[in-house]
Amino acid sequence: MRNTIGFIGLGKMGLPMARHIATSDQIVVGFDTSPERLAIAREAGLTVTAGLEDLLKSSAILISSLPNDEALLSVSEQICRCAVAGSIYIDTSTVSVEASATVAEQLKRAGIAYLRCTVSGNNLMAEAAKLTVMVSGDHAAFEACKRLFRCWGEACFYLGQADQAKLMKLSINLMINLTSGMLAEALSLGQKGGLAWSDMWPVIEASAVGSPIVKAKAGALSKRDFTATFTVEQMRKDVGLVLDAGKSLNVPLGLTALAAQLLSSASASGYADEDYAAIIKVVEKASGLG
């Protein structure tokens, strides 16, 4: 007999993740606080509900994709109040380690297994089921849910019993953000010295620094298309979490702090809703280009 899986948060990441599970012959019911997102999910073929409390009571497995710490803490409180003891809660949100640890304590008291299941990749990779999945928490729950994680991508890693997955996601986003900073300076230097924007990109892709993230960004950026897969403001939020983690763990994150300033400049320059790579335009302006 199949159990109901409740999926909370049907945004640009949550919706395709929920749909992939539903198409793997699982019973999935989605919830979102936005009527617009519920309508989009319904049109996409997902079963949805506007009643969170009933969903929490009827689901053996709960999954969430949430925007921030506050949303996670709120959902966790409701899960502790309504969900059945023995159920499993999987959170895929990018949040602080501190908030996740608080949730872990709440769920432990309620008798609910907690898996921190962060994913690396953008909404296009979510649509294509090519996310990298990082999980920590209760190992028995991980083994029970491993088949679900494979719905989101082939690469799946179990990292430990606590909040290692949350910290791993922050570490990866640190590197992604610094990659955009590296590109900003390199491209500005090349242009100022007379290299054509369109000539630099094929060389960068073919070079030793042509990493998967660089190649993924090259198609759009080589045409100066800064349409967001992940916005400046979203990256600012994540980098803030990274810096908070560094402070908590006494790890100096000087390069990350500088990159955070570039993101602030990008937001102040009107690029808040563009792709986080818009920091390239900030460095260009500072270099007297354009």
Results as ranks from 00 to 15, higher is better:
residue 131 L to M: 11
residue 62 L to Q: 05
residue 125 M to G: 13
residue 53 E to Q: 13
residue 75 V to G: 09
residue 52 L to V: 04
residue 65 S to N: 12
residue 108 K to R: 15
residue 98 E to L: 07
residue 80 C to V: 14
residue 143 E to L: 12
residue 73 L to C: 06
residue 142 F to V: 05
residue 91 D to S: 10
residue 91 D to V: 02
residue 96 S to W: 01
residue 131 L to T: 08
residue 115 L to T: 03
residue 59 S to G: 15
residue 82 C to R: 09
residue 128 A to D: 10
residue 67 P to R: 02
residue 84 V to K: 15
residue 97 V to A: 11
residue 135 V to E: 03
residue 117 C to K: 02
residue 99 A to R: 02
residue 137 G to Y: 00
residue 144 A to E: 11
residue 90 I to K: 02
residue 79 I to F: 03
residue 89 Y to D: 04
residue 130 K to G: 11
residue 93 S to L: 01
residue 90 I to E: 01
residue 82 C to Y: 13
residue 75 V to N: 05
residue 116 R to L: 10
residue 118 T to P: 04
residue 123 N to M: 12
residue 108 K to L: 11
residue 52 L to Y: 00
residue 69 D to V: 10
residue 68 N to D: 14
residue 127 E to C: 12
residue 101 A to T: 12
residue 57 K to L: 08
residue 107 L to Q: 02
residue 139 H to K: 14
residue 128 A to P: 08
residue 85 A to Q: 13
residue 145 C to P: 14
residue 116 R to M: 10
residue 64 S to W: 01
residue 141 A to S: 12
residue 64 S to I: 05
residue 135 V to Q: 04
residue 104 A to M: 05
residue 106 Q to L: 11
residue 109 R to T: 15
residue 128 A to M: 06
residue 97 V to Y: 06
residue 137 G to M: 01
residue 105 E to K: 14
residue 130 K to V: 06
residue 65 S to P: 10
residue 61 I to C: 13
residue 64 S to G: 09
residue 95 V to I: 08
residue 57 K to F: 07
residue 68 N to R: 07
residue 106 Q to A: 11
residue 68 N to M: 05
residue 123 N to R: 13
residue 98 E to P: 07
residue 133 V to F: 03
residue 102 T to F: 07
residue 91 D to R: 00
residue 109 R to I: 13
residue 55 L to S: 07
residue 102 T to P: 06
residue 119 V to L: 09
residue 85 A to H: 13
residue 89 Y to G: 05
residue 133 V to K: 02
residue 127 E to N: 13
residue 119 V to N: 05
residue 82 C to W: 11
